[in-house]
Simulated scan of single mutants.
Amino acid sequence: MSQTLDKQAPKRLCEHDVEGNVMTQDVIVVFGGSGFVGRYVVRALAKAGKRVRVAMRRPHLGQDLRVMGDVGQIQLVQANVRNGDSIARALEGATGVINLVGILFESGKQTFEATQMAGASLVASQSAKAGIRRYVHVSAIGADRNSPSKYGRTKGQAEQAVLAAIPSATIMRPSIIFGAEDNFYNQFAAMAKMSPALPLIGGGKTRFQPAYVGDVAEAIVKGLDTGGGTYELGGPNIYSFKEILSYILEQIERHRFLAPLPFFIAQPLGAVLNTIFKFYPFGGPPLTDDQVIMLKTDNVVSAGARTFADLGMHELETVEAIVPTYLYRFKPYGQFQAKHKPV
């Protein structure tokens, strides 16, 4: 009887997820699954009953991902987007691929060309060889192979390479993404905690359309079954850079001067900071010259683009509903103290 139960148990665990939903034989490989957006994507896939294989450079650092699904539902494998053989091994038996790999600044071998362009091209070509047609590539609003920004240019080149290899691929272009672990609202809140002023780059006129990471993850999972196309993912509201900084200061109850920083000053300053932080072992630069170039263009959904709505998603989370739930950490008096005047 014991042996019979032991044989039945693995089958039961493999056929149902943690919520009791039947799992399919879909094996979705996620590149970049250990990152900010990737963790939400892995969770969404697991909730949808998919079998998830997270391809990452250091699988031993992603053990916490396993608890997002049922026993055996989430698998960690070693792979590097710059190594074709490792990609091919990760793709064995896969029915779909999601590539989230991207960087905000260059460091060592992690360059825009190697990671965002060549890496994306290699993952797509290996997926094509494996016969995979359900493919989602996560890019960004502003991706353009002719962009003056290295980030935007390599994102655009990657899109072109992916579609050349897999014409049925779906491209997702989010605006800035917010959530508890984001590198945007948190970064400026942390800066305000230490600095008497925040840089109002270019006068703060650049417009953004922030999207909640949970909504973006859901859209990415839906993208596996769209049959192709490009989608621009922007949240329900548009804000100027100045409005975003002012909102952050309001939420963390700190009074800071918003110092206008013209582009012609910000760009060389960003270049210096980028160079310095290449030799700094912890974290990234607060600003790079490439980021300044990107700030010269609005980061909002373009007219006529396919959006969340085309994926059947009409009720999106707002900045006002989510951001206060994690920025309280930067308040001078803590989360539960009575509201004070800004300090």
Rank of each mutant, 00 (worst) to 15 (best):
M1D: 11
Q3Y: 14
T4V: 13
R12W: 13
E15V: 11
E15T: 11
H16C: 02
D17V: 05
V22D: 10
T24C: 04
V29G: 07
V30E: 02
F31V: 02
F31M: 03
G33Q: 07
G35W: 08
G35N: 02
G35Q: 06
V41G: 03
K47P: 08
V52D: 04
D64L: 08
M68K: 13
G69I: 09
Q75A: 15
Q78H: 15
A79I: 07
A79Q: 04
V81G: 00
R82Y: 03
R82S: 06
D85S: 09
G96W: 12
N99W: 07
K109I: 04
T115S: 00
A120M: 02
S121G: 09
L122F: 04
A128S: 10
A128N: 02
K129T: 08
A130W: 06
R133C: 06
R133F: 06
V136C: 05
H137D: 09
R145A: 15
R145L: 12
T154E: 03
Q157H: 06
A161W: 11
A161G: 02
A164D: 14
A165Q: 02
A165M: 01
I166W: 10
I176W: 12
K193N: 10
L198E: 05
G203M: 05
R207T: 14
P210V: 12
Y212C: 04
E218M: 12
A219H: 10
T226D: 06
G228V: 06
Y231K: 11
E232W: 15
G234M: 14
P236V: 13
I238V: 15
L245H: 05
Q251C: 01
E253T: 01
R256C: 01
F264P: 03
I265G: 02
I265A: 06
Q267W: 08
P268A: 02
P268T: 00
L269P: 02
L269W: 07
A271G: 05
T275Y: 14
P281D: 04
P281H: 10
P286A: 01
P286M: 00
L287M: 05
D290A: 01
L295A: 03
T297E: 14
D298I: 12
V301H: 11
G304Q: 11
A309P: 12
H314C: 12
H314K: 15
L316F: 13
V319H: 05
V323W: 05
Y326I: 00
F330Y: 09
K331Q: 03
P332Q: 01
Y333K: 09
Y333R: 11
G334N: 00
H340F: 06
K341Q: 13
